[in-house]
Design a protein around this nucleic acid. Structure first.
Length: 217
DNA sequence: AGAGCGATTGCCT
DNA sequence: GGCAATCGCTCTG
């Protein structure tokens, strides 16, 4: 049996309207879509000749955040850091946490409403070699991308470089795959937060080995 | 101005 | 399971 590896040519970029919906439905619907980073390099032998490669991974775990609940960065209103959460849907919100990690989010709902979906885990499909080189601490394949800061590292996502980027047209995009198989969704409480613990706003693809480990606490 | 802490990870026992 | 790393953001005074 062949390894399941979607062809890059059969990935189509999700349109703006996909993101202009309730944060909970977007968080659920992002499962089974593909995070794609296109990297342009320069050929050493022939300067000027364009070479590019792609990092592709399937989204398997998400969490919703909304201005109406205190666990969200947007709860305190518009600030320099949270400005993009209140901006147009379909853009990247990247924040810096614990003095050393970045996390990648997708802005959704209408402009003016502060909401975003945190991408917590993805399953690599293309470009594993590059991801491994960026994640030397990873012992097992799952450790490449089974956590929000891990996948940001694997994809080279940082605040300076990527915060505010348009996911419809920039070098970071999210795509649907034509022949993506159906999956079942689990819904649980969010990980690592202390506020609004009662909300089941975390979505995972049931049984996927790249779903992040749940830590006690 | 300063304290306290966070949507995490990796190393140690 | 415990805990250090490391700094931007928020709140308090």
């Amino acid at each position: 049996m062949d390894v399941y590896r979607p062809s890059t040519t059969h990935l189509r970029v999700l349109p703006r309207r996909f993101y202009q919906a309730s944060v909970l439905s977007v968080a659920r619907d992002l499962l089974g879509t593909y995070l794609v980073r296109t990297v342009a390099t320069r050929d050493r032998q022939e300067p000027g000749s364009g070479i590019e490669y792609r990092l592709v991974a399937r989204i398997v775990e998400t969490e919703a955040y909304h201005e109406s609940e205190p666990a969200s960065h947007s709860y305190r209103g518009i600030r320099p850091r949270t400005e993009v959460m209140f901006g147009d849907p379909g853009h990247a919100y990247v924040y810096f946490i614990y003095g050393m990690h970045y996390c990648f989010n997708v802005v959704c709902e209408a402009s003016g409403i502060g909401s975003a979906v945190l991408i917590r885990a993805v399953e690599p499909m293309h470009g594993e070699a590059v991801m491994r080189s960026r994640r030397p601490a990873a012992r097992r394949p799952q450790e490449l991308t089974n956590g929000p800061a891990k996948l940001a590292q694997a994809f080279g996502i940082t605040r300076d470089r990527d915060n505010g980027k348009d996911l419809v047209s920039s070098d970071i995009r999210i795509c649907a795959y034509r022949d993506e198989p159906a999956h079942s969704v689990n819904r649980t409480g969010r990980i690592g937060i202390t506020k609004a613990r009662d909300l089941d706003w975390r979505f995972t693809i049931a049984g996927n080995p790249y779903v992040s480990k749940k830590r006690t606490r």
